[in-house]
Write a protein that binds this DNA or RNA. Structure first.
Lengths: 153, 153
DNA sequence: TGGGATTATATGGGCGTCAATGGGTATATA
DNA sequence: TATATACCCATTGACGCCCATATAATCCCA
């Protein structure tokens, strides 16, 4: 599977390390398995992460915004300048920078949520609440969620 | 046959393994026969499953949404983080994650119901009751059922 | 066509490997 | 030198891989 899926709840040890879920590590290209990028989500108090290869895709998406709009600058600044790269050690662990941890309210444990081509890291309780809220919003439009899941191509 | 059909009642062993019905395994493409995806059904206390190919289609659909919209996050979260992938071993068995088992009320045995392009896993009694209920609902509108079954394309 | 043989399927269990986690020590950086 | 981080080794429990068996289905040949 080459997508980030499912959710995982892991601990941060005394040294500040946390395991990147094994299934997430396998999504990263064998070449760059020891490096990921992290940045603050622009839509929620969470951290988003992905392989370095995805940077190009992010750039493309931002480029598709109207260059002269205020959004362009805002997104561009908020995302690019906030990106940090982190090394994954041989055991599959990495360090979450303090600034990102406090942005997400993370202390001693964190939850990983697969999001397809990237993943999010949340303070566990907030992360769970967020999934519930998302689902509640979508269920109001039952048809669309169902379509998304069952529609045939 | 390339559709999930019929129903099967199997046991979960001490290690938590359960056989994926042989006919279901044959529906999966020979390439990805050893991996399936599972997720909570939206409308019933059951688990739905299918091959990983379907997940890729879903990913494509979500990718087409506006990346910076709130809908994007809602779909992405509700789908990717709720989906789990599971490996099917050489004997055709796999593990149902605890969270999904408890969502469906499954303990030591489970029932598989073919649903065409996907399948459902139920706690046996509830699954049977559900089929009865569905059928009863359909029969109330006998006319439309008869039409459905006899109409030629 | 009948009946024995072969194959497939559902299920059980042993065992090695891997994943998540902890910690000691070396190396680097400020 | 002090603090942080990379590398190495260790532990525990879960999971994958392998082998085994019994029953059911299929095949094959006389």
């Amino acid at each position: 599977m080459d997508l980030f899926v499912s959710k995982y709840f892991y601990k941060i040890d005394k040294k500040g390390r946390i395991s990147l879920p094994s299934s997430f590590r396998n999504v990263l290209p064998k070449a760059n398995r020891n490096e990921i990028i992290l940045y603050k989500s622009i839509k929620s108090p969470s951290i988003e992460g992905c392989g370095v290869g995805r940077l190009k895709e992010i750039a493309k998406r931002i480029n598709n915004l109207d260059f002269f709009s205020e959004d362009y600058d805002d997104f561009s600044t908020s995302i690019f300048s906030e990106i940090v790269t982190t090394n994954v050690d041989k055991e599959g662990r990495f360090l979450i920078p303090e600034e990102l941890k406090s942005y997400a309210g993370i202390k001693t444990e964190a939850a990983f949520f697969g999001q397809g081509h990237f993943f999010q890291i949340w303070e566990p309780k907030q992360g769970l609440k967020n999934t519930e809220d998302s689902r509640r919003r979508l269920l109001k439009e039952k048809k669309s969620l169902r379509m998304m899941l069952t529609q045939q191509k």
